[in-house]
Design a protein around this nucleic acid. Sequence first.
DNA 1: TTTACTTTTGACAAATAATGTCAAGATATA
DNA 2: TATATCTTGACATTATTTGTCAAAAGTAAA
Lengths: 99, 99
Amino acid sequence: MNRFGDIIRKKREGKGVLLRQLAAMIDVDAAIISKIERGERKARREQVERIAEALDMDKKKLMIEYLSDNIAYEIIAEDSAMDVLKVAEDKVKYFRQNK
Amino acid sequence: MNRFGDIIRKKREGKGVLLRQLAAMIDVDAAIISKIERGERKARREQVERIAEALDMDKKKLMIEYLSDNIAYEIIAEDSAMDVLKVAEDKVKYFRQNK
DNA sequence: TTTACTTTTGACAAATAATGTCAAGATATA
DNA sequence: TATATCTTGACATTATTTGTCAAAAGTAAA
């Protein structure tokens, strides 16, 4: 089980891409990528898309990692975290059907 | 299936409490409660706790409704919303065990 | 160790988003 | 109509997020 940051760091290093190179590709400061990879900061949605492109990754899969990371982080400290996720699931299903 | 706002509106009306009365109890402007009940604005966590107290509701249950609403709203527009929730579930489980 | 290079850190500024306030408008009811 | 409640929207305030930068720390080769 890897976090979003770990996933992109592994991919980046596997391809031999430097922080500043990836930074240039997605047009941000290298410091930001460093922080994102170590989980110190959240990426922005557009950055996730650009990272996927730059590192030749599946955009949808990476987005799922990104969004699930955000959600997990949001509720991991709650006793009822699992209940919250189950209710959220019900709500997504229900409110999609009932507009 | 009800949203957070619907739940508290029903409860408030059922008890015959006016917006401005509830507002006074939780120390916010009545406009804010109005917006929260109609889903126009998110409540703050502290407000959820105070609302539960003021309306004599189960604080934990209400918090689950609140948090799940936030999450559902966050991803309902995603094609992969259900996948995101499943992965989030795995992550919560995993990262709790592995500190 | 020195040098050259990469990554990390933290302070700060800028931008964006969340929250609160208020008064006027809408709605409902007697 | 008169009274009370609720809603709306513009605006101010506050908080959070995001970006920038330079210095510090880490890494590896000569």
